[in-house]
Design a protein around this nucleic acid. Structure first.
Lengths: 354, 354
DNA sequence: TTGTAAGCGTTATCAT
DNA sequence: ATGATAACGCTTACAA
């Protein structure tokens, strides 16, 4: 089945069928109906390649996961992001292709870049997760190829969606300070990720604003995995003077950290207060219920698509930089008791706000 | 840059450039070198749409996640699968597009099917996770469109990769029986997924082979999520006579189940033996170290791609049905102590094989 | 409102 | 080994 055949069967020209298919309003009702009937009868769907070739649009966008942040793949965070991206794509009638650099060869990444981008396989790309120096980003920018980052890049004037990681982390740590904790530590993400840096900066800022010393030894790295969080907490516990509270830069790591506490015969918040980041605890099922920074992950994904499509449609416009709001969920792991504002949806089985 | 321009610059015909680009051996070394130089100089990459249109191949495959198994998305299992699929795609120079049905409208799924499949957006699809009755599968089969299931479908003679879930589960439960457990329960997956059914069947078979009664009330459903496993274990614990061991149909659920035990002041294997399924415990960081059925998830993904490409290249051939091997990892949660065959890589921080 | 016709950038077939 | 040339199936001015 091709446009041509449908046209013949409907007794119209190819262009008319094309108009009907594409919802062009300049078609008489009568003709539209007739054509549509033939289309439906034969279950016709236009060929994607032909369409792309003629229109110079593939209606495909790529989700690029840079090598080196492959660890995000294992984080439920990423799944929520993907879910938001896919939904937005479905809504906009776009397809999503997964561009994951194979961990090994540099050459394969070149290949991906060249073949996909220059071969016009996709109309634009979303780059999941911002790292300090990403050659691909600078290259896309040079080529004027449409893209958007999930996570700001302070060094480049490019489009992105993000949350205000610094402020959110700062608020969380201020909250811990208000609880009266004296030695607040942190479990941080990989040092090459902007989000890690920003959250750590927020942690430091809060301490400084409160006139507290910043002790670098109270921070351990957990590479955004549950296991990493587990390890990092073990490191902190092994310190001569362990922290009495920990701000953890992701819920996944926090989940591991809580387990490390339990395995050490300790518990939060009694022995050590814990504050997370992400708002994923519903999936993680933590006990105690994890206090955390809730960020609208799925919305980040949707926004990324929205911005990308804007850039695809007007590549010359100035970069779009959008911040989405976060909020603190004060549950039990930070030391908060039952709170009046603790909504039912924030509860979890086994969670017993004291 | 187009083939045409490269041809002009190299002083050859368009066809010759095409041959060079596609590695056709029927080109003299001299000409090939000259053309390649021009290609490299201009960083030329052939246009994907034009290629697809002319060759009737998109070099894209789809990974279809049926609505209703959206829960698999949150399972690390899925990520490993995707990773295998992507790697195999990278190797074969294929692109992977994510086909996730929006949870809401039936209409959108129709749309996906029609637009993607009939519009020839992809050369074939991998269907992640086999459910009992999937209209899309039967439809693909009718249309003669290349596809492969991850997970067998006993009702249909179609291509798939899978592990022998029944046997593996049976072995696991036999192992529990040998430990001397008297009341062995199970936490099962969604009843519409073949994998759930097969694993439950294995559980039942093992009991029967040992002359044990099968008590339906000792099984609870955990929908393949950590939270579901947590809940299911709570249900089992609330029983008048709780089980003394539980076979859990996925590690993610087992992780939740272990947490439910801890939250109830119990522990495995002392109070209740636990056996998982998947081999993901490294990510989950469980304490005690989870005994589980290890299945080669990434290989399942790679195999799926391999089979799919076979089917794309020879659609008329008979369906390919491949089973990959599993193995039991006997750690501590089932009651096993330190085992001579327990390799170092099977250990995990905090795991203390008694 | 509808039709005509010229691309879009390749691959593939057939000569030479 | 190389080159013409005809598809591939659609979009998009432009004309009518």
């Amino acid at each position: 089945m091709t446009l041509e055949e449908i046209a013949r069967l409907a007794g119209v020209s190819r262009s008319t069928v094309s108009r009907v298919v594409n919802g062009d309003p300049h078609v008489s009702e009568e003709v539209r109906a007739r054509v549509q009937r033939v289309i439906d009868e034969h279950n016709f769907h236009p060929n994607a390649a032909a369409r792309s070739l003629a229109s110079r649009r593939t209606r495909i966008i790529g989700l690029l996961i840079p090598r080196g942040v492959a660890s995000v793949l294992t984080d439920p965070f990423f799944l929520h992001l993907v879910q938001g991206v896919v939904e937005a794509c479905n809504d906009a009638d776009y397809l999503l292709t997964l561009l994951i650099e194979s961990s090994d060869a540099d050459i394969s990444n070149e290949r991906v870049y060249e073949r996909i981008i220059r071969g016009r396989h996709v109309d634009g790309v979303i780059i999941a997760s911002s790292v300090v120096e990403d050659p691909i980003v600078e290259r896309l920018q040079l080529d004027g190829f449409p893209f958007v980052l999930v996570g700001r890049n302070p060094r480049l004037n490019v489009s992105f969606v993000d949350v205000d990681n610094l402020s959110a982390a700062k608020d969380a740590v201020h909250h811990l300070i208000e609880h009266g904790y004296r030695r607040i530590g942190s479990i941080v993400g990989p040092p090459n990720m902007i989000a890690s840096i920003d959250r750590y900066a927020g942690y430091v800022t809060a301490l400084q604003e409160s006139g507290r010393p910043v002790d670098r030894s109270l921070s351990a790295e957990g590479n955004f995995t549950r296991r990493g969080g587990y390890r990092a907490m073990q490191e902190l516990l092994a310190l001569p003077a362990p922290p009495d509270a920990v701000f953890v830069a992701s819920d996944t790591m926090a989940s591991g950290a809580l387990q490390a506490l339990r395995d050490a015969g300790l518990s939060a918040p009694d022995d050590i207060g814990v504050f997370g980041f992400d708002g994923l605890e519903h999936q993680l099922v933590s006990q105690p219920v994890l206090s955390t920074v809730i960020q609208p992950i799925q919305s980040l994904g949707r926004e990324a698509v929205t911005i990308l499509l804007e850039r695809i449609n007007s590549p010359e416009s100035a970069p779009v930089q959008r911040f989405l709001p976060t909020r603190l969920a004060l549950r039990t792991s930070c030391g908060c008791g039952s709170q009046p504002h603790l909504a039912a949806e924030d509860m979890i089985e086994g969670g017993v706000p004291a």
